[in-house]
Amino acid sequence: MIERGCGSMDIESAVKFPTEDENWVVKVLIGGIISLIPIVNLLATGFCLKVMKETINRTPKMPEWGDWGELFVKGLIGAIISFIYLLIPVIVIAAMTGGAVFSMGMRSGMPFTMMIGAMVIGGLLAVLFGFFVPMALAMYVSGDSISDAFRIKEVVSRIKSVLGEYITAYIVIILLSVLLLLISVIPIIGWLIATFGSFYVGVVAAHMFGEVYTSSVA
């Protein structure tokens, strides 16, 4: 959690946040199973946004699974907001991949190099543009207004006001995501552990950035 006034973050407590709920194992299992199903997995996104909302309201907790319609709508809106912010990396990856496929059709020796370049450049752009997504989502759930997520000046201003904590939270989530990626390559059970772990990390991220948002100023 954020320790206001000292500009530091208790990373260990933040990562353990989901375990404070007595039914956290069941809730994570449900979230992991839901995450496996395309479209339906928007419910998991909605759940994480509800965690963020509770944190912003200073009542941090993992909510009960329910209100499925509300979770789905919030998850869908959250996914749309994230997609719009990440549109440039998506376009770059699509363009470079398309170029590689075209080169392959022309029997050029460049497609493999272009594919690697697309992944590297696209990944870097995703990290860069993705940096603004958590604050945009926090602004959305705080005011329950989609337009709030695209008040770019306020997004930037709020991030600047808590830059140290925000960067710390962002790096922690990236590192946890990389760890899950490494776990996913373990034969047979790796992908399953990573799936449930990804939902857990999503809850952690929602809580961390919800805390950061409450400390920020426009």
Rank of each mutant, 00 (worst) to 15 (best):
A149E: 11
Y166T: 07
R158L: 13
A169Q: 02
L176D: 01
S177E: 10
L180D: 05
S145N: 06
L179E: 10
P134E: 09
S161W: 00
I167V: 12
L176W: 12
I171M: 01
S184T: 07
I183S: 14
S145R: 08
V133Q: 03
L137Q: 15
L176S: 02
M139D: 03
D148T: 12
G190C: 04
Y200M: 02
L176T: 07
A149L: 04
S198V: 10
L181D: 12
A138L: 13
K153S: 04
A194E: 07
P187D: 12
A149D: 07
I146R: 03
W191N: 14
E154I: 09
G197C: 05
A138C: 04
P187F: 13
L192T: 03
T195M: 15
L192R: 12
V155F: 03
F199V: 13
V162N: 02
S198C: 14
S145V: 14
L192N: 01
I171F: 11
V162S: 13
Y166S: 00
V156I: 15
A138Q: 03
S177V: 10
I159E: 15
R151N: 12
F196K: 06
S145P: 09
S147R: 05
Y170H: 10
V178N: 13
Y140G: 04
I193Q: 01
L182K: 05
I183Q: 06
Y170D: 04
S184R: 03
I186H: 10
L179V: 11
